[in-house]
Nucleic acid binder design. Sequence first.
DNA 1: CAACAACCTCAACTCGTGTTGAGGTCAAGA
DNA 2: TCTTGACCTCAACACGAGTTGAGGTTGTTG
Lengths: 136, 136
Amino acid sequence: MTSTDSTDLLDIGEVIEASGVKASTLHVWEKAGLIDVAQRNGLRRQYEPEVMTRIAVIVVAKRAGFSLDEIGDLFTPGIFDEGKTLLTSKLDELRQRRDELDAAINGLEHAIACPASSPFACEGFQSTLPDVLPVT
Amino acid sequence: MTSTDSTDLLDIGEVIEASGVKASTLHVWEKAGLIDVAQRNGLRRQYEPEVMTRIAVIVVAKRAGFSLDEIGDLFTPGIFDEGKTLLTSKLDELRQRRDELDAAINGLEHAIACPASSPFACEGFQSTLPDVLPVT
DNA sequence: CAACAACCTCAACTCGTGTTGAGGTCAAGA
DNA sequence: TCTTGACCTCAACACGAGTTGAGGTTGTTG
């Protein structure tokens, strides 16, 4: 029997190259419980190929504004199972954030199209300001 | 003559109450050049009413992911005038972020509707993962 | 006027995330 | 076997953004 049964595991170097995420960052994410190490070859970490999906999720979630702790919650089976309430409330947050983002985009589009000398002189921009105050 | 000519200026306390932003945060934003103090009453800051708009913009921009420095750029007249290139590139970033956010929302909606026990077991979720890798 | 409450400054601290660097281990190829 | 370079650990540092607290000032009200 050849050593083919570990052929599908990825060295950290491969993960780094394929993902663009640095080793130090992967270590941090691992310590935060976001990614698992399948096994070690000596000291060296070896990952299941699925780690790439995981990393993609983390990257997307971070851009969406999740903290590492919150991302960890998404990965916790119990939390996911129990009525998915956490996920649902996250979803609400995300929707709201998207709406705000949309408002910001519209505002900036107005401001760019406008001859005014600053966003504040552009009433199209002004009108897109949601009543975000008081900050909750 | 009464003191009516400063009647329209806001004490920091009023700003705090109306905006929900803490004094310490306002100080930080002021130091970063994001908000101006119209005048002082003794030591005490007094603001033009327009500061409320400014604060609303800052809050929205922060939620949209701008750093304080970037927000400062938006307020710099020269930068705004000069072809509005900065604003335009910010706008591109925002659009991309919104698209990612949309993808994340769709993914989570799939995951919630799905009987699978984790987002990774949900192929609707999987299919919404953009190719965010390698991270640029 | 006297006292108080609101405000001030400034430095030090917190928190989350990640990076850097020194020094050590080890798998694999020549 | 020897070497090499990829990888390891762990602590210290960096950075953005804000908070806290000690100690000081002062406008306002009784």
